[in-house]
Design a protein around this nucleic acid. Structure first.
Length: 426
RNA sequence: GGAGGGAUGGGUGAGUGGUUGAAACCGGCGGUCUUGAAAACCGUUAGCCCCACAAGGGCUCGGGGGUUCGAAUCCCUCUCCCUCCGCCA
């Protein structure tokens, strides 16, 4: 969320930034509403000042056992007026907050200007896409052929966009999660968190999923509970409504969780395979940084995520998202895209964002240095990385002519020494 | 699921409907004393909003609503925590 005062003082800048994102102008009524709210506020507060004063007078009259009925009659009248102006101010305040809550973050000046993902800028590449001397299979054929992935039974048990991993497939999923967690906790200094997969509305509001994106989420009927779309939500909200000590900064956390997304509005997209599921696993990185640290921390977080793919020998590239492709809460985002033979191209496997103070303002997460005044922290989050997509990237990139899949070296300790997945009888 | 008890400033914890935005203690900060430190003593120590040159004003005692001229205090409701019972991985 942006600060009310900031929007008031930078109205044209905010509008320009909205335009760069391709977002609609949400600020048409802002100025009048803001003005009227303050007018009602002053009217109410002047009367409250009077009320406070007269209340003291009434108290002292009563103490001296004198009659206060004239004053009390005046106060009755005043009370009604106060209630009216309070109500007015509250309604205007709510409208204003509603507007503010739906305004996306201001974009960092380094974000490439564009209208869609096509304008994203490649920053760097790692690795060479492998050349096959046979026709490579997509993972949605490879997995079922190997007997480690089953879409049909998942559809029976639940529905479309779910999958069942079995045997070495299930083990590979687990191995990947452990490999990633170990890398980040042991080599990169992140503290592991295992949070709830279910959160309340206030938490989702804090990271920016609510109020605007409710339709992307699964809600538990009859409750205020929602399934998390990413571990960013519970982990960033760890410190909601808290003031932290600057000494320990930056704070770095990683978490493995299942993620749940309704994928409303993506009908027909990526309907085959594991790319777009309602439930998937992800190792998430979250940082709380001082404002002057946050862009360096974004770079190192992006490298930390990239190292996962490098150790697994998966070719990838890093792109800076353009203004037209940016998420709601982010000021700057790098996507990591892994090479997928089935797409003959790069597909998103991680997204690393600096949200600056946008989430911290919503979630009221502050930091105090020394005796200074508390200020809002900068929050960052990035996938480190999406486990399900890594799973399919390994299948596709490490497939052999005979239909088997070689396990990357770095993963073998996590697979009890298994070096290869070969077709099994079902 | 049932029955009780709680929620007050950075912490512990008082608080009879009317100078209680809030005692006291601890902690923090500043000072006196001291070569320095400790101890002792003195002082100080919430946030947000409106207006703004300044002065000033308003709100906040878990959240929301109500009663009242006036609510930390009375009523309703929600959330969370604790104890006991039931159920349970």
């Amino acid at each position: 969320m942006l600060e009310l005062g900031f929007v008031r003082e930078n109205l044209s800048l905010v509008r320009q930034k909205l335009q760069e994102r391709g977002a609609p102008d949400l600020l048409e009524d802002f100025e009048t509403l803001d003005h009227e709210r303050r007018k009602s506020l002053v009217e109410a507060e002047n009367r409250k000042a009077r009320r406070n004063k007269v209340s003291d007078e009434i108290a002292s009259l009563k103490k001296q056992k004198q009659d206060a009925s004239t004053l009390i009659a005046e106060m009755k009248q005043l009370g009604a007026e106060i209630a009216r102006f309070d109500e007015e101010a509250k309604a205007q305040d709510e409208k204003l907050r509603e507007i503010l809550a739906r305004i996306p973050n201001m974009l960092h000046e380094s974000v490439p200007v564009g209208t869609s993902a096509a304008d994203n800028q490649e920053v760097r590449r790692w690795g060479e896409p492998c050349k096959f001397d046979f026709e490579p299979k997509p993972h949605w054929d490879l997995g079922p052929d190997l007997g480690i992935l089953d879409f049909d039974r998942a559809a029976k048990i639940t529905g479309a966009r779910f999958a069942i991993y079995s045997g070495l497939g299930a083990k590979l999923e687990r191995a990947l999660a452990n490999f990633m967690l170990d890398l980040h906790t042991q080599q990169h200094g992140y503290t592991e968190i295992f949070p709830p997969f279910i959160v309340n509305s206030a938490t989702l509001y804090g990271t920016g999923q609510l109020p605007k994106f409710a339709e992307d989420l699964f809600k538990l009927e009859g409750t205020d509970y929602w399934l998390i779309p990413t571990a960013e939500v519970p982990v960033t909200n760890l410190y909601r409504d808290e003031t932290l000590d600057a000494e320990r900064f930056p704070l770095k956390y990683c978490a493995w969780t299942a993620c749940f997304r309704s994928e409303a509005g993506s009908y027909g997209k990526d309907t085959r395979g594991l790319i777009r599921q309602h439930q998937f696993q992800k190792v998430e990185l979250v940082k709380f940084a001082l404002p002057e640290q946050s862009y360096d921390e974004l770079e190192s977080m992006t490298r930390d995520a990239g190292e996962v793919l490098e150790r697994l020998g998966l070719p990838y590239r890093v792109v800076a998202l353009s203004t037209g492709d940016m998420g709601f809460s982010s000021a700057k985002t790098y996507d990591l895209e892994v090479w997928l033979p089935s797409s003959n191209g790069y597909r998103e496997i991680s997204s690393c964002s600096n949200c600056e103070a946008f989430q911290a303002r919503r979630a009221n997460i502050r930091v105090r240095r020394g005796k200074g005044k508390a200020e809002f922290v900068h929050t960052l989050n990035g996938s480190g990385v999406a486990v399900g997509r890594t799973w399919l990237a390994i299948l596709e990139n490490y497939q052999q002519a005979d239909g088997s899949v070689v396990i990357p070296e770095a993963l073998r300790p996590y697979m009890n020494g298994d070096t290869c997945i070969t077709p099994i009888a079902r």
